[in-house]
Design a binder for these strands. Structure first.
Lengths: 195, 195
DNA sequence: ACCTGAACACCGTTCAAGT
DNA sequence: ACCTGAACACCGTTCAAGT
C-alpha cells in the first residue's frame, strides 16, 4: 500500500538511507498492518532497496526491533512528561485523564507489539516494565492524593492498570471494549471511594 | 479450510499418526515454548516424520491452527460447564472462584496464542468471543445475584473481565501480577458494594 | 490410509564487490 | 559511507511415488 519510491532522507542531503528512515517505516508498517508484516524482505521492497542495505544499518532483525523499542521508550518518556504537567489538577480529573491516555486507541498495534517482543527480548522487557511502573505509579499517586491509604492505593492502582492492559488487548471486539473503555467516570468514582 | 481428516484409534493399534496426535503435540509445544515454536518443520522433527505426513492430516498451517482453536473451544466449554455446577454457592464465593479461574496460570501461553490468532483468523475470533462472553456473563450473574442492578452489574463485569485479560498479559512480570492476581477478595468486596 | 523425498518459494543472514 | 547481487539455511507448501 505505502509503496515508498521516493526515499526520505535527512535534512541536509546524502544519497542513502539512515537508520531513522528504517525505524520510521517500521512504525508505519507496525501501526497499519501489525507485527507479522515487519519483515526485512517486505520492508526492503517498500524502501526500494535490497536487503544488504538493511544489514548495513542493523546487524540483524533483533537489533532492528531493539531500535524500535528504544524509540518507543523515548516516546513513552515524552508522553509521561506531558502528563506530569497536569499535576495541578484535582486527583479525580487527573485519574480520568490518565485512564483516557492508558486506553487510548492511538497506538494499540505498537503497544501490543512491544509487549509481544518483551516476552522474548530482555531489553524490550525492561523498557516496557519501566513504562508500566511509571503509569501505575501515576495512577497510585492520584489515589493517594485523594485520600486513600498507601496499601489500598497500590492495590487499586494495580487493578486499574491491569484493566487498561486488558482493554488494550480486547480492542478488537467493540462489545468488550464498551464496558472497559467507556464508563471511566463510574470506574473512577468506585475506585476513589474511601468509606 | 477445515480439511481435518481424522481417524481416532485405540491405545494399541494402528501404525500411523492421527490428527489428534498432532493437535496434542501442538498444545504441548504451545504451552512449553509459545506460539512461535509451533512450526511445521520442528513439529515434524519431534514426531519423527517428514512434512508430507503433516500435510496429509491438515491442508495447511491455518487449518492446523483452526483445529487447535476448535479443541480449545471444546475444552473451554467443559470448563464452563464445570463451573455451572457451582451455581448453588453464594454470589461472593462464586465470583471468587470465577476470578481464580480467569487468572489461573495453567494455560497462559495457550490463551495468549488464541487471542493472537483471533487477530487474523475469523474462526478463532468467533471462538474467543464466545468464550469471553460466557465468562463475562458468569461474572455479571454473580453481581446481579448479589443485588446489583443490571446496568451496574454489566459495567463491573466488563471491568473485572478486562482486569483478568490484563493479568493474563502481565503474567511475565511478577510485580505487576501481584496486585491484579492476589487480593481478589478485596477486589470482590469493592465490586460487590451496593451502597 | 499414511508417509517419503524431492522440488520450489519465501525470508533471514552473510559477504565480496561495486560506487 | 552506502548499497548490489549472489549465495545459503530455514520453513511452508506441493506432489508424484512408495508401502
Amino acid at each position: 500500500m505505502t509503496e515508498v519510491r521516493e526515499r526520505k532522507r535527512g535534512q541536509g542531503g546524502g544519497r542513502g538511507l539512515s537508520a531513522d528512515d528504517w525505524i520510521e517505516l517500521g512504525y508505519a508498517v507496525l501501526a497499519e498492518e501489525g507485527l507479522n508484516q515487519v519483515k526485512i524482505d517486505s520492508l526492503c521492497r517498500r524502501m526500494g532497496v535490497t536487503k544488504g542495505s538493511f544489514y548495513w544499518h542493523f546487524t540483524d532483525i533483533a537489533a532492528y526491533r531493539q531500535a524500535l523499542v528504544e524509540r518507543w521508550g523515548e516516546w513513552s518518556d515524552e508522553e509521561h512528561k506531558k502528563f506530569e504537567s497536569l499535576d495541578g489538577l484535582p486527583p479525580r480529573e487527573r485519574l480520568l485523564g490518565l485512564i483516557a491516555q492508558l486506553t487510548s486507541p492511538r497506538h494499540w498495534m505498537i503497544e501490543r507489539a512491544m509487549r509481544e517482543w518483551a516476552r522474548t527480548d530482555p531489553q524490550a522487557r525492561a523498557s516496557i516494565r519501566r513504562s508500566d511502573r511509571r503509569a501505575r505509579d501515576a495512577v497510585r499517586r492520584c489515589l493517594v492524593d485523594h485520600g486513600l491509604d498507601e496499601q489500598t492505593a497500590s492495590m487499586r492502582a494495580a487493578w486499574i492498570f491491569a484493566m487498561g492492559v486488558g482493554a488494550l488487548h480486547l480492542s478488537d471486539s467493540e462489545e468488550d471494549r464498551a464496558g472497559a473503555g467507556r464508563h471511566s467516570a463510574e470506574l473512577v468514582d468506585l475506585m476513589l471511594r474511601t468509606d
